[in-house]
Nucleic acid binder design. Structure first.
Length: 278
DNA sequence: TGCCAGGCGACGC
DNA sequence: GCGTCGCATGGC
């Protein structure tokens, strides 16, 4: 058995203001767990790794040397968030929202996993979403090493019954997951093709899945397909937008709407008392 | 105990 | 097209 532990360091310029904790805890991903001492561990696209923020960037344990481009892409490190924030912060309210967690980056996650995760997210809370995703991986995904499972491929879910998925405790979302798996595994829906479609066509294609409406499609496109102009509106965002931007998102945020959304969402979640429930 | 959670589908109008 | 309701589950 090879017991060599590999480390990979990703340099991140200080002006990026990167925060691993805010990035992993802001509700966009569901497979990272905090270990309590600054370390996190998670599985991304069949790669298990531990991550810790260092003064000059990010330290990844168990990450292969050749995977540096993969991880840089995952953490969206080829994009300057300093420049994006500069554009967004021309608006005073956006500047206020971004100030709560300027180190957030919008991860570039796998389309299929992201789609399923946000199907599970509907009328649900972050803790439970993570639990259901963990049980989905444990029950149906490949075991990568002892106790560590990949997210199940569509064909590993397709053909199962809602009864088979009962241990997930996903409730009525189980049927939605199965419909997504059946459509993707059968080729009726081609996620690679969706990735290349004009945005409105991609939205419509995703919404042919039972249980995928405007919100879930928007999240899948933003987090899983890298469509940064997408702007998911959930209950938190609706509350925040009503107070902060009753006339809609300012112009300066148009191209980076998804990233603006992440700042606003996080602000609303960490300061719920600042926003009316109605 | 009731209320709520990163919604959606079915239904009535 | 729009409002309302129920939906499974678990934390508070």
């Amino acid at each position: 058995m090879d017991t060599t532990i590999t480390f990979l360091q990703l340099a991140i310029p200080a002006e990026e203001n990167f925060s691993l904790a805010d990035t992993l805890d802001c509700g966009q991903c569901f497979r990272w767990e905090a270990e309590g001492d600054g370390w996190y561990h998670g599985v991304v696209s069949r790669r298990f790794c531990r991550a810790k923020q260092m003064p000059d960037g990010l330290l990844l344990e168990h990450a292969a040397e050749g995977d540096e481009p993969f991880w840089r892409n995952y953490f969206d490190l080829e994009v300057s968030y300093a420049a994006i924030r500069e554009r967004l912060c021309r608006d005073r309210q956006l500047a206020r929202a971004a100030a709560f967690a300027p180190g957030i980056r919008v991860l570039r996650q796998e389309p299929w996993e992201t789609l399923c995760s946000f199907i599970i997210s509907q009328n649900n809370n972050l803790g439970r979403i993570k639990g259901i995703v963990a049980r989905l991986c444990g029950g149906f995904g490949d075991e990568l090493s002892v106790g560590i499972h990949a997210f199940p491929r569509p064909e590993q879910l397709a053909g199962h019954t809602e009864e088979d998925l009962a241990p997930l405790r996903a409730g009525w979302r189980a049927g939605y997951l199965l419909d997504a798996a059946d459509k993707v595994a059968s080729g009726e829906l081609d996620l690679d093709e969706i990735a290349r479609m004009p945005l409105d066509d991609a939205r419509a294609a995703l919404q042919t899945i039972r249980g995928v409406g405007p919100k879930v499609a928007e999240c899948a496109l933003l987090y899983g397909f890298g469509r940064r102009e997408c702007f998911p509106m959930d209950v938190w965002m609706k509350r925040a937008m009503k107070q902060l931007f009753p006339k809609g998102l300012p112009r300066c945020a148009r191209a980076d709407a998804g990233i603006a959304q992440q700042y606003i969402f996080h602000y609303a979640r960490v300061c719920p008392e600042a926003f009316d429930k109605k």
